[in-house]
């Protein structure tokens, strides 16, 4: 039996199960069993991880209120599988939106999980790799060449900025999120309207750009690497170029 590993394992087991007594082998200087002292560690773990979730999911927190949010996060953390696997907390919380979707007490807010997903995507976009956007003149030259080919459009493919993500919701999650940034009025929103958005960080700030269903589908196909022929959505393409979302373009030219 590996005694060394067991010491940390016993400590960890007690740490994550608040109904248990402190592990054997630890004590305070006066031989007190140290339950309150051990609780300092328990509290640090749980509170710091709840804080990490609250940082990422700020609008979710505003929608349900701080006490509800913290209770929900505490429930989430009761499952050891939901503890961080890595110390890089910028990438912690991926499983929280799905947890919210199944969290009974939040069932009256069916859009809550989608708002959480939007916030998660925005955080990942914030920390995604940097890249230079393609020059818009170069892009329009290549697109024109593709479209004006005599024998029909040359299929082409777009390369996107690493911070780009597409968000789709059955609910008005984009407007609900925007209302909490002072960009829309919550009272004017029908939560049951499906919404889509482009998430992008061309420079230092993440942008959340509402999209039509058609534009979202078009970007979805682009992102899947599908060769584009006669793209029907000039305005969407224009938006992508203008926002700096495209880093490159390739023509599938046949020899």
């Amino acid at each position: 039996m590996d005694i060394k590993a067991n010491s940390d394992s016993r400590f960890q087991h007690a740490l994550l199960n608040p109904e248990l007594a402190p592990p054997d082998g630890v004590s305070a200087w006066d031989s007190e069993t140290g339950s309150k002292r051990f609780d300092v560690y328990r509290n640090n773990v749980i509170v710091s991880l709840i804080d990490a979730l609250a940082n990422c999911f700020d609008v979710v927190k505003q929608l349900v209120g701080e006490p509800f949010f913290r209770a929900m996060a505490r429930e989430f953390l009761r499952d050891p599988a939901n503890l961080p696997a890595s110390p890089v907390l910028a990438h912690y919380g991926e499983r929280f939106p799905a947890f919210i979707a199944d969290f009974e007490p939040a069932a009256t807010l069916p859009y809550l999980s989608d708002v959480a997903q939007l916030e998660w995507l925005r955080l990942q976009s914030l920390h995604a790799a940097d890249a230079n956007s393609a020059d818009s003149k170069h892009l329009s030259t290549v697109v024109k060449k593709a479209l004006s080919n005599e024998t029909g459009c040359i299929p082409f493919k777009l390369f996107f900025h690493p911070s780009l993500a597409l968000f789709k919701s059955r609910y008005a999650a984009v407007s609900i999120w925007a209302a909490h940034q002072g960009l829309a009025k919550l009272a004017n929103i029908d939560p049951n309207t499906p919404e889509q958005a482009l998430i992008l960080r061309p420079e230092l700030e993440v942008e959340t750009i509402p999209l039509s269903h058609e534009s979202a589908d078009f970007i979805d196909r682009c992102m899947a690497g599908e060769p584009l022929r006669n793209p029907p959505l000039g305005p969407t393409l224009e938006l992508l170029v203008q926002k700096g979302a495209i880093t490159g373009i390739a023509l599938f030219e046949e020899e």
Binding site: S9, Q12, V26, Y41, V45, S48, L83, P87
Partner: peptide, 15 residues
Amino acid sequence: SSHNGQFMNDLLPLP
């Protein structure tokens, strides 16, 4: 702070 693939986000004591 990490054990069994879980990160506990605190500085824990050792023997």
